[in-house]
Amino acid sequence: MDQQSSRLAAFGLRTGILALILLALCIIGNRFELVHFGLAVRGLAFAALIGLIAALLSAAGLVRTLVSNRRGTRTAIAGLVLGLLVAAPVGQAIIAGSKVPRIHDITTDLDNPPAFSAATIAARGEASNPLDRAAPADLAEQQRAAYPDVDTLTVDRQPGKVYEAALETARDMGWEILASTPETGTIEATATTRVMNFRDDIAIRVTEAGEGAHVDVRSVSRVGESDLGANANRIRTYLHVLRQKLAQD
């Protein structure tokens, strides 16, 4: 019994290490474009499953070692922590993704979304998602239902000043600026996610609105059917930071 308990804890730790290795391989493979993003994403889900199994095995091993008062407690704790470390972030992303529609093109202006010109096929890649917002057919309705708060920002400031603040905010967000045209009030940029190195394209438009200005933002994922809510969150964060910047001026 004691020997079995020790083996269970050790097996849980080895399973956790396997999950961590698979997680690292998927991240590295996607970052350096060694594997297709779809394969990398499926690999992440599989790594999370293995991590969950490792956590369960380690938890069982921990209970048995404590009951038997034999060696293996530290091994079981290490396996439990390692398994959860792999499973928790991926699992959280999967749960978050299940709560949002499978769309990847989000804009504050559903009737007249900011357009792209600098984000060409050559720059984005031929396999990238299209920018025509043609699919799904009810894209606008799905966005409106899921993200009713993603809307045009109206500010009581001179459009030129707002444009300068909008451009500065985009740079502060760490985005790569592809084009900035003050004459038309447009900005195009690319955001790169930290872990998986996914690239999303962003279009910003500042227009005159009476004595103030409207700011519209559009964020589009290059790959994947669902963005797991990332584009809406990016727009929310950007507009929040922009509001704070304009309030300080």
Rank of each mutant, 00 (worst) to 15 (best):
residue 210 G to W: 03
residue 236 R to Y: 09
residue 222 R to A: 06
residue 239 L to M: 12
residue 189 A to P: 14
residue 214 H to W: 02
residue 199 R to D: 13
residue 191 A to I: 10
residue 245 K to L: 11
residue 213 A to S: 14
residue 237 T to M: 13
residue 219 S to T: 03
residue 186 T to R: 15
residue 238 Y to S: 12
residue 188 E to K: 11
residue 188 E to H: 13
residue 242 L to T: 12
residue 206 V to Q: 05
residue 201 D to C: 06
residue 236 R to M: 12
residue 214 H to E: 07
residue 199 R to T: 15
residue 233 N to K: 14
residue 204 I to C: 11
residue 199 R to Y: 04
residue 227 D to T: 00
residue 231 N to V: 05
residue 245 K to Y: 10
residue 229 G to C: 03
residue 211 E to G: 04
residue 203 A to P: 12
residue 236 R to P: 07
residue 221 S to W: 01
residue 187 I to W: 12
residue 202 I to A: 06
residue 218 R to M: 06
residue 218 R to Y: 07
residue 201 D to A: 05
residue 236 R to W: 10
residue 207 T to P: 03
residue 192 T to S: 12
residue 209 A to G: 03
residue 213 A to P: 01
residue 193 T to A: 08
residue 206 V to W: 01
residue 209 A to P: 02
residue 238 Y to V: 12
residue 235 I to M: 08
residue 204 I to M: 10
residue 239 L to N: 10
residue 201 D to L: 06
residue 231 N to P: 08
residue 208 E to I: 07
residue 228 L to F: 15
residue 233 N to D: 15
residue 204 I to G: 10
residue 219 S to G: 07
residue 212 G to R: 00
residue 196 M to I: 14
residue 211 E to P: 03
residue 196 M to H: 05
residue 225 E to L: 01
residue 228 L to D: 09
residue 210 G to N: 03
residue 193 T to Q: 09
residue 221 S to C: 04
residue 188 E to S: 12
residue 192 T to N: 07
residue 193 T to H: 11
residue 197 N to R: 14
residue 197 N to D: 11
residue 220 V to D: 05
residue 192 T to I: 13
residue 207 T to W: 07
residue 227 D to H: 00
residue 189 A to R: 10
residue 198 F to W: 02
residue 230 A to C: 04
residue 210 G to A: 01
residue 209 A to S: 08
residue 243 R to W: 10
residue 241 V to T: 14
residue 219 S to C: 08
residue 225 E to N: 02
residue 185 G to W: 04
residue 214 H to D: 08
residue 219 S to E: 06
residue 210 G to R: 01
residue 204 I to W: 09
residue 199 R to S: 12
residue 219 S to Y: 02
residue 210 G to P: 01
residue 222 R to H: 04
residue 244 Q to T: 13
residue 229 G to E: 05
residue 224 G to Q: 00
residue 202 I to K: 08
residue 196 M to C: 07
residue 193 T to I: 09
residue 201 D to F: 06
residue 187 I to M: 11
residue 206 V to T: 04
residue 244 Q to S: 13
residue 239 L to A: 09
residue 213 A to K: 02
residue 237 T to H: 14
residue 199 R to A: 12
residue 242 L to C: 14
residue 223 V to D: 03
residue 230 A to P: 03
residue 190 T to P: 09
residue 240 H to K: 13
residue 237 T to K: 15
residue 202 I to R: 07
residue 219 S to P: 08
residue 185 G to H: 07
residue 220 V to W: 05
residue 192 T to R: 14
